[in-house]
Design a protein around this nucleic acid. Structure first.
Length: 870
DNA sequence: ACCGCCGGGTGCC
DNA sequence: ACCGCCGGGTGCC
């Protein structure tokens, strides 16, 4: 346990505190949890640990410490190897890190061995709390890797501490604790629901663009989250104390509330505008940001100097200039939103006159490079033209690194990379030396990897208020959330151990209360609307109608014959793999078979190429070529986009010689931990770092135009020809051209080229391309293709969400026309099967929380069987 | 009595 | 700690 350094609370006497709670739960709940343990395969991660057993121990020396604990409270156990009385000492601390006592000597000696050798993690819960001032019992649970279970249990037993492994009987205390939490989480769930988010707030007058109702709601919610001093999730007032119902921790002081949260609205709902409105509307004490009025650049410049002199000389008085001054003041006040908000004068006075120059005045916005210009545009566009807002772009080698300068700005914008680069020389990073009023992380899910340098740099910033903007905050797994909570400083979850213990592990084990707590937690700090959300029966935003129709495609006689041939061949192969139990070992081959069938459905010409490439030939260069080709197929197919190590979507994809795709860092770690004979997690073939093949950086990007004279049509393509009129997006796996001006966007393109292509397509010029060929997985969610009103999905995706995302790129804010989506599905083919699997997948999304690695493997094999009708 | 018993001093690691 | 443990005072029935 790493104990949080910030001991905000020195709790005092709550000894003997009594909760009048009826224990209405039987042992069923606990049994469910324990049974789940045995079903879970051992995982290297801490949150995949298995329970070794429980042990009742004693905490001693309570009277020497101030840390106080309640009945049922979770405690941390921390080794103190430096303790001068006993190098085996194990300290007991509450959630704020305040010491409660020590584990009794003999038990501590046994635990020290186990803990120091990383054989188990030990967690504690105090069933009775502090009843007297000397000792108290503690329920210890030992968690660790399966392979250490026997060692630990034997060792402890030899020392006279027999771990209770039955899950019942002696575990009653723990069970009571669990039930306790379950009940409380129910209560809080209702509280969370009652928290109203539907008030509206008008933006300050300095915001030049009128806000839509849902944006006013968001503004109201954000202001409330910054200003109100309510209790954070899971805290309640009990008498004189504040009590956390999850950890059962209580403290005399009011727990520090997170000032900020996650704005997780769908893209297109105006997160940027709302944030700008927040900056202008909610400065100190809930008042608008004092801004300078500025009629023209020249006046503004003059005006700034005037103020400067006024304040410097203090007794400056010139009738002529004073009158200008007053006029401007009035105007500024009017812009500020109310007569008492004395724009310029107040701000400048505050800044220059008080010793706290530049403290907590500036908002720092961190965004990916690709959206920097968007922020600048939006400030330009939405800030009232007569208002001068000091926005500084902290970017480029010539950036002004003066802390004084930066903290005198209203807004500083920078990128994650710049921040991270500055952080690497931390002492010199001006960004880390400033006390920001507010930090806004745009596309905040970028920091979801806590090991990343960028994440560390972000965590180290100081601020009063913190916001995360993200359309997809937890798309992948519960794990993603931790970093966000840590950034928001949501106590106690900003400490990894507590997060794992209270949320992460229960949720991964499928514990109901855990999932509920997670939901409550998220609900309290998140505002999320989708473009289909409604307020008072009205949709949030107006979007033109969208119709989706499925077009059944009949294959021609020859196409059908070819298809059946390929299918039978493939089916035999896969049937053999299934019988041998080697489906995963031959996964690349299986994928290739499926891919071939799907290509058959789209266009016969796609095949020849792939088939010829699968021919013999084994020089290293050829092997590499083929692996790259397979990697391309895997990435394009969307069938295997998740890395089996991290279970996230693949980042920096590499392909092994056994043709399985992983994130490079993930598989590199597997190889380094397994040392001599590293094996592929999927098929157990031997793998080496030197044999990992990456996608070539810039593939021959320009024009590999195929011979158009050889081009023949296919049934599917023919269907498209019949209905092409205005600008359309054709989403497809395999890109080819015929007869239209078109642009093409796929995953292998550089960022630069993508931008150019999108600009061309979105352009209103007469000669701009009418068609975009878009590969299914290309581009981020930010892609805006509103120039198109027709979407042709040429090839079904495995994941329905992927298709949705594609459609949403053109059915989004700014779309003026009706959107027609046509999905082409070849009758009686693998494509129809895929659609069936898609339907099933949607239910699975909800269950996915609890699903394990092996579940996913099984379901993948099941999918393949279904596709091949086996 | 090289014991038992009583009662005061004392008390984490 | 309304305990246990220690060690001094004490000592038959």
């Amino acid at each position: 346990v790493s104990v949080s350094a910030t001991s905000l609370v020195s709790a005092t006497s709550v000894r003997g505190w009594d909760h009048s709670v009826t224990y209405m739960f039987t042992s069923t709940h606990l049994r469910t949890v324990s049974m789940t343990f045995s079903a879970v395969s051992p995982e290297p991660e801490a949150d995949g640990s298995v329970l070794f057993g429980h042990l009742r121990g004693t905490v001693v020396g309570l009277r020497y410490y101030t840390g106080v604990v309640n009945r049922g409270e979770m405690v941390g156990l921390v080794r103190q190897p430096q303790n001068q009385h006993d190098r085996n000492a194990v300290m007991v601390a509450n959630i704020y890190g305040n010491q409660v006592g020590h584990i009794k000597r003999e038990l501590a000696a046994a635990m020290a061995y186990v803990m120091d050798n990383n054989l188990a993690k030990v967690e504690g819960v105090v069933p009775s709390g502090t009843n007297n001032s000397f000792t108290m019992p503690v329920m210890l649970s030992f968690w660790g890797k399966e392979e250490h279970k026997a060692t630990v249990n034997e060792f402890m037993a030899r020392r006279g501490f027999k771990l209770n492994t039955s899950g019942s009987g002696g575990a009653t205390d723990l069970h009571i604790v669990l039930s306790f939490q379950l009940r409380n989480s129910f209560d809080n769930l209702f509280e969370g629901l009652m928290e109203s988010k539907d008030g509206e707030k008008e933006a300050a007058k300095a915001v030049g663009t009128p806000l839509l109702p849902h944006q006013k709601q968001a503004l109201s919610w954000m202001c409330a989250r910054e200003n109100k001093s309510g209790l954070p999730p899971f805290w309640e007032k009990r008498g004189e104390l504040y009590y956390n119902s999850l950890t059962c921790f209580s403290a005399k002081e009011i727990p520090e509330r997170v000032r900020g949260g996650i704005l997780a609205d769908d893209m297109g709902l105006g997160k940027t505008l709302t944030t700008i409105a927040l900056i202008l509307t909610n400065f100190h004490q809930g008042k608008p940001l004092p801004v300078e009025k500025c009629v023209s650049v020249a006046v503004c410049y003059f005006f700034q100097h005037l103020i400067f002199f006024t304040l410097c000389l203090n007794n400056y008085s010139s009738c002529e200039e004073a009158s200008v001054f007053l006029e401007d003041l009035d105007f500024a006040a009017a812009l500020g939103g109310s007569a008492t908000d004395t724009g310029v004068k107040k701000k400048k006075t505050a800044k220059k006159a008080t010793p706290t120059i530049g403290e907590f005045e500036t908002t720092l916005i961190i965004a990916p490079l690709s959206v920097l210009s968007n922020w600048l545009d939006q400030f330009e566009q939405h800030v009232h033209p007569d208002v001068k807002l000091n926005v500084y772009l902290y970017y480029g080698s010539a950036r002004n690194r003066s802390k004084k300068f930066l903290s005198s700005q209203d807004v500083v914008i920078t990128t994650y990379n710049v921040l991270s680069a500055d952080f690497s020389c931390k002492s010199k990073s001006p960004l880390h030396g400033i006390d920001w009023l507010r930090i806004v992380l745009d596309e905040g899910h970028i920091i979801r990897n806590p090991n990343a340098q960028t994440s560390k740099a972000v965590l180290d910033l100081k601020a009063q208020r913190r916001w995360i903007l993200s359309g997809t905050p937890i798309q992948n797994s519960v794990k993603d959330l931790w970093m966000l909570l840590a950034f928001l400083r949501l106590k106690p979850f900003d400490v990894r151990e507590w997060w794992n213990r209270v949320i992460q592990r229960p949720v991964t084990l499928g514990d109901r209360a855990g999932v509920q707590n997670l939901q409550t937690l998220v609900k309290c700090i998140t505002l999320r609307r989708t473009k289909t959300s409604e307020v008072n029966g009205r949709p949030l935003v107006f979007l033109p109608e969208k119709t989706v129709c499925v077009e059944q495609v009949e294959l021609s006689r020859t196409e059908r014959e070819e298809y059946e041939l390929a299918r039978n061949e493939g089916r035999n192969t896969i049937r053999r793999y299934v019988a041998e139990g080697t489906v995963l070992r031959n996964y690349a081959d299986v994928l290739a078979i499926l891919m071939r069938l799907r290509q058959h459905c789209c266009h016969p010409d796609l095949l020849a190429k792939t088939l010829s490439e699968l021919g013999a030939g084994a020089t290293p260069a050829e092997l590499r070529e083929r692996l790259i080709e397979k990697l391309r197929l895997v990435l394009a197919s969307g069938s295997d986009e998740e890395c089996s190590v991290c279970l996230d979507s693949v980042q920096l994809p590499v392909i092994t010689h056994c043709a399985h795709v992983y994130c490079r860092p993930c598989i590199a770690q597997v190889i380094s931990t397994e040392q001599d004979t590293a094996r592929c997690p999927l098929c157990r073939s031997e793998i080496k770092t030197s044999e990992l093949v990456e996608f070539p950086q810039e593939e021959v990007e320009e024009e590999n135009t195929p011979n158009s004279e050889k081009w023949r049509t296919s049934s599917k393509v023919h269907c498209v020809h019949c209905r092409s009129d205005s600008s359309i997006v054709i989403v497809l796996l395999f890109t080819r051209e015929h007869g239209f001006t078109f642009v093409r966007l796929d995953g292998t393109m550089s960022q630069k080229k993508r931008t150019r292509v999108i600009q061309e397509f979105q352009s209103t010029a007469a000669d701009s391309p009418a068609i975009m060929l878009l590969s299914l997985k290309a581009g981020g969610v930010g892609l805006n293709l509103t120039a198109a009103s027709h979407v042709f999905l040429m090839d079904p995706a495995w994941n329905p969400a992927t298709e949705e995302q594609c459609i949403d790129r053109c059915h989004r804010l700014g779309q003026k026309r009706k959107v027609v989506v046509t999905k082409f599905i070849v009758k009686d083919s693998v494509e129809e099967k895929m659609v069936e699997i898609q339907r099933g997948k949607q239910d699975l999304v909800e269950k996915a929380f609890g699903s394990t690695n092996s579940d996913r493997k099984t379901s993948r094999i099941d999918d393949i069987k279904a596709l091949m009708e086996l």
